[in-house]
């Protein structure tokens, strides 16, 4: 299976185990890679999310696609710059990516072109701060500032 993938896809392919393949691709060939994988029986998108790499000043997009026929999980990764992050939608390839893309916009501030609901509030209604899943967002500070805590004396016996 790996040989077949190597034939089709240009990119770094790591074989973690027979059932788990990591594919690292360039930013512009992300959707074409997924399209090619779908042709190779990877028909199910199980996760589509992003990881914030603060030191590199980059986002890593991760898409997990699974092949029911070959029982292989392919992990497709790509890096995008953090300034004005924008990606193309993959709903034309995997329709269930719709809500994942909404989540990308809401939690990371990544704009998805081609998704009508991108950057619209879904879970965080009336959110005005940094997108909360970015690493430079301080959750404790935000929580102590916005939500009042109960004044309790903690006693340890």
């Amino acid at each position: 299976m790996v040989e077949e993938i190597k034939k089709v896809i240009k990119g770094e392919i790591l074989e973690k185990s027979p059932q788990r393949i990591i594919i690292k691709v360039k930013n512009d060939s992300f959707s074409s890679t997924l399209n090619a994988l779908k042709g190779l029986s990877f028909k199910r998108l199980t996760l589509f999310t992003a990881v914030d790499f603060v030191k590199d000043n980059q986002f890593e997009l991760v898409a997990l696609v699974y092949s029911n026929e070959n029982k292989i999980l392919a992990i497709v990764k790509t890096r995008i710059p953090k300034e004005n992050p924008e990606i193309e939608t993959i709903t034309n390839i995997y329709p269930n990516a719709f809500k994942y893309e909404v989540e990308l916009g809401e939690m990371f501030g990544i704009k998805v072109i081609g998704n009508p609901d991108s950057m619209k509030p879904f879970l965080l209604e009336g959110w005005e701060d940094l997108p909360p899943l970015r690493k430079d967002f301080d959750s404790i500070k935000y929580a102590t500032e916005h939500y009042e805590a109960r004044n309790v004396e903690v006693k340890y016996d």
Binding site: D129, P132, Y142, A143, Y147, E148, R150, V152
Partner: peptide, 19 residues
Amino acid sequence: TINGGIYWDSYAVVKRLDL
């Protein structure tokens, strides 16, 4: 509902219900 519980540092969870 009393004081946030294990979600005391969450950005989306209110801590005290009685407010």
